[in-house]
Design a protein around this nucleic acid. Structure first.
Lengths: 198, 198
DNA sequence: CGGTCTCTATATCGATTCGATAGGTCGACT
DNA sequence: AGTCGACCTATCGAATCGATATAGAGACCG
């Protein structure tokens, strides 16, 4: 769901559509980029349901420190800091409402299994969860992956086709990698909880 | 694209919608399953454009050897072989036309970059290509993955957030796995071409 | 015998998402 | 002077999904 992405990004900072899409494409998790054809309708929907509201196009929209950006980027940032409301069409800057903030946590802790893209997004914003909620998220994903492994084992069927066999091998390898990665996440989180017990 | 999947499956055997979807879910490549809401409109579209046509609900629709199927499956296969037109609603069995066959090869050799799901489908049916066409498919994919690696290196940005860092690590691991897998495919294919030069 | 469950099978609905495209402003390079 | 690319919002048609309706047949159960 695109909602997780939008609410997660707005949680940290008010943004307008174009910038929202750019940051979405930048964050890891493999192919997170979405099209404007999805984004703008989604923003309208979220505004209609009160999760998000348009804020005044504030001076100082951009708070990022342009640490090692390109020359063009630095110039753009300079302009954004000193010459409000320049460049392009008038921006419509969106901000998260309190009910939007609540909805984000709901989406992040939603127990129904997420597909790969959605899970990646959840991890990307899981810093807004409690350690216990994070552990639950990771454990649920682990269970789901183990179910996939089991399901695959049920029907090996020994394909006659070379390429189908190769595809299966690739799936196995990626599943193993993902499981090992998840185990590392879970171990780290457990350790954190032991060091700082609530 | 769903077309690759449908045409690829029909290339080997005439099938009806329900069975088509079942087999699609069975073949490897991770989450290849599609919904009926996609399949039936797609079948209508393909029929309208002459890629596919409804054939008579022949006796002997099922030619699969029920080698190690479940008991239920064997019974169903037996029935399918001996009692035509039993079970469920009347089937509409689709077959590939010659122009559909040509379109399949076109889709399989289409040089524009495919997303992960589509690439998996292409590999699943690449046995219908010539060795040279297969090599091209694999090499193009390899180039695309290398481009992703390069793009990622351009903006490391050293996230402050632990979970974003972990996501990036996971992406790196999966990319490496995929590249190694692809190299194996390419090496095997090259070897095959040397052994059996055309 | 009836009840109801699962499997087979086709089909459609509304909502979501995508890809392409069309606007429109501005500065930079040629 | 012209055009190129960045920024920025927006919409359209088509593709796809998930849920749901409909329906026949056998299986399981008391």
């Amino acid at each position: 769901m695109i909602d997780v992405a939008v609410l997660g990004l707005l949680k940290e900072q008010d943004l307008h559509g174009y910038e929202l899409r750019k940051r979405l494409g930048e964050l890891p998790g493999g192919r997170t980029a979405i099209s404007f054809g999805s984004l703008y309708p989604a923003l309208n929907r979220l505004e209609r349901t009160g999760m998000v509201k348009a804020v005044e196009a504030s001076t100082r929209t951009d708070r990022r420190v342009p640490s090692s950006a390109s020359l063009v980027g630095e110039l753009a940032a300079f302009r954004a800091r000193h010459l409000p409301a320049t460049g392009g069409r008038s921006k419509k800057v969106y901000g998260l409402t309190s009910s939007g903030e609540a909805h984000l946590v709901e989406l992040l802790t939603d127990p129904q299994p997420s597909d790969d893209r959605t899970f990646a997004l959840k991890v990307a914003f899981c810093r807004h969860l409690t350690p216990a909620q994070r552990l639950e998220l990771f454990e649920r994903r682990r269970a789901e992956l183990l179910a996939r492994v089991a399901e695959r084992r049920r029907g090996p069927e020994r394909s006659v086709d070379r390429y189908l066999r190769m595809l299966r091998e690739r799936d196995d390898a990626n599943l193993s990698t993902d499981l090992a990665w998840l185990d590392r996440l879970i171990a780290d989180e457990t350790q954190q909880m032991e060091k700082h017990p609530s």
